[in-house]
Simulated scan of single mutants.
Amino acid sequence: MLNFKQLYYFWNVAKSGGVIRAAERLNLTPQTISGQLGELESALGTELFRRVGRRLELTAAGTLALTHADEIFQISNELETLLRNPQVGEELLFRVGVVDGVPKSVAHRLLRPALDLPEAVRLICHEDKPERLFGELAIHKLDLVIADRPLPRELGVKGYNHELGRSTVTFCAVPPLAARYQSDFPQGLSGAPFLLPGEGTSLRGALSHWLLKSQIHPHVIGEFDDTALLKAFGQAGLGIFPVPTVIAGEVAHQYGVTTLGCAEEAVVRYFAISQESRLKHPAVVAVRKAAKGGFFTQETPAKNTTADSKDLRG
C-alpha cells in the first residue's frame, strides 16, 4: 500500500522546487526528506526525480504522481474542513470549471446568481484548459463547465451544451490611441497596433474571421492566453484590444480605456456544459436563468464609454 507520508514529502519537494526548501517548509532535515523519497521510489519501482546539474526535475512518472498527489491532498484538505466545521456539510456544493479563454468578469457575472439562492451555497471554482475540465466533468468532479465553445464530440465525453448567450465584439484602447483610429472605423484599423487573445479561444476565432472578411490587416503587437494580462497591456497604451461587448462598458471603466466601435458580425457564444440534459442542480438552474433573463439581453455596442464602475479585473 502507498505510504502517504512519503507521498506528502514527495509532493512538498515537487512544489518547493528542491529537497532543502521542502525540509525548511516541513521543519525536517534534508537527509530525512531524501531518505523518505528514496524509499518511496524503491516501493514504486521507478524514479520520480532526475538530477539536472544542481536541480531536480520530475521524470514522466514523477509528473504523473504529482498530478494525482495534488488531487489527493486537495480532497484531504476539503475533508478536514468538513470535519472541523460540520455546518459546511449543510451547504450546497457547486463545483464549477471555467475554461481559461472565458474572461473572468464574464465568468463572475454568470456565476454570481448562484450565490443569491435561499440556501447556503459553497462555490468551488477551477480555471483550466477545456480538455482537462471536460475530463473532470465526465468523472463527476464538476457540476458544470463554463466554456466559450460547445463540448467537442471528438473528446468522447458525455455532456450537454446549454447555450447561455451570445455577444458581439467591441474594440478598446486608451483615449489617445482610440482617437487616432476611431474616425475611420473599422477600415482604419488596418495597420493599427493590436493585442489579440490566444489561439484556440472563441473570441480569437470570431475576430480572425471578421478581420479576414472585412479585409482589415492590423499590426499584431502581442497575443495573450490570459485575458487580464491582455487588458493590462491595453491599459498601458500598447495596442487596441477586443472584448465581448457585454463587458465592454465595465472594461472601459476599470482600465481607463475608450471603446472605438463594435464588430457586430463577430459573435462569441458562451455555454454551460453539464452531464444533465435537463438541468436539476439549483445553482446550475440559477446560472442559466440569470443569463437568459438579463446579462446577455442587455448587450449594447458601446462607443466612447468612459464611466465609473466597480473594479473586477480579468
Rank of each mutant, 00 (worst) to 15 (best):
A65H: 03
Y8I: 09
P130S: 08
L64P: 05
L56T: 06
L82T: 10
N12H: 14
G53S: 10
S42M: 12
R132C: 00
T67Q: 10
R51Q: 12
Q6C: 08
T59L: 01
E119V: 15
N27Q: 14
T63P: 04
H68Y: 11
L92F: 05
L92T: 14
D143L: 04
N12D: 08
L2V: 15
K141P: 00
E41Y: 01
L26E: 08
T32V: 12
E80G: 09
E41Q: 11
G135P: 00
L79W: 06
G45D: 03
L37S: 03
E78A: 12
W11K: 12
A69D: 01
S34K: 12
P130Y: 01
E24S: 11
P130M: 03
K141D: 10
E80D: 13
D100T: 11
L44C: 01
G62M: 04
Q6L: 10
D128Y: 02
L137N: 00
M1Y: 11
T46R: 12
G97I: 00
V19W: 02
R95N: 03
S105M: 15
D143C: 03
F49Y: 11
E39W: 06
T46L: 07
L40K: 05
T63I: 12
H68M: 09
L142D: 03
P86D: 06
K104L: 14
I33Y: 07
L66F: 09
E57A: 09
V88N: 13
S16D: 10
F73M: 04
L40M: 02
I72K: 11
I139Y: 02
A107L: 01
D70K: 08
E47W: 00
G18I: 03
H108P: 09
E41K: 02
G135A: 13
F49P: 04
P103G: 08
L83H: 12
D100R: 15
A14F: 00
A114H: 09
F73V: 06
E57M: 08
N77P: 00
P118G: 10
R21Q: 15
H108S: 15
E57D: 08
L48C: 03
G45N: 00
G89Y: 08
A107R: 06
P30H: 02
M1H: 14
G101F: 04
V52Y: 08
